[in-house]
Amino acid sequence: MPRVFVTVGTTEFPALAQAVFAPGFAEAARRQGCDSVEMQIGRLSPEALPAPVREALSRAGGDDDKHASASLDWNGMPLTVFRFKASIQPCIESAALVVSHAGAGSVFECLRARKRLLVVVNDELMDNHQQELAKAMADGGHLAYCSAGDAAVAAALATLPAAFEPLADPATSLSAFSAVVSEELGSF
């Protein structure tokens, strides 16, 4: 059951959640051969959730339990929603592709898990270096990125390439760091 995993991060990112609830998203997911969606919504305010989603999450105990998860049918596709998990690693591992906020932690977790990744940039953040990272990684062919808008996200998801350039092994960079330390400590 190929699934799309969406993560908005630990804060709010209403524009990304909205794009997932928009009708075009399920269609784009289907174009990628996926038949279900799982979404981590962080601190998204209940008002930003469509009524059926809000009610399903509330029924699942989401009003008190930040780890509750609710499943429902949305735009003809099974959708699972939760706020937080101790680790989203299993969600990433089991997904066919990931749609993520631009935080470096999440981006590298996905790329190290060798998942196809669409990064949605939050234009509302000031001093936006996340966008810089997403663009540089896209230039290297490691991921695709788009701005947060219903149409932009759906279009980028529908046309997500079938494969990306894998990241170079960090071992090379870490040994370069280690070599610098050796030079500094005078132990060649």
Binding site: H129, E132, L133, A136, F177, E184
Partner: peptide
């Protein structure tokens, strides 16, 4: 003490 600073991967430009 030798001091080594590593800039964050987020800083590209």
């Amino acid at each position: 003490t030798r001091i080594v600073f590593v800039e964050s991967v987020c800083r590209v430009e």
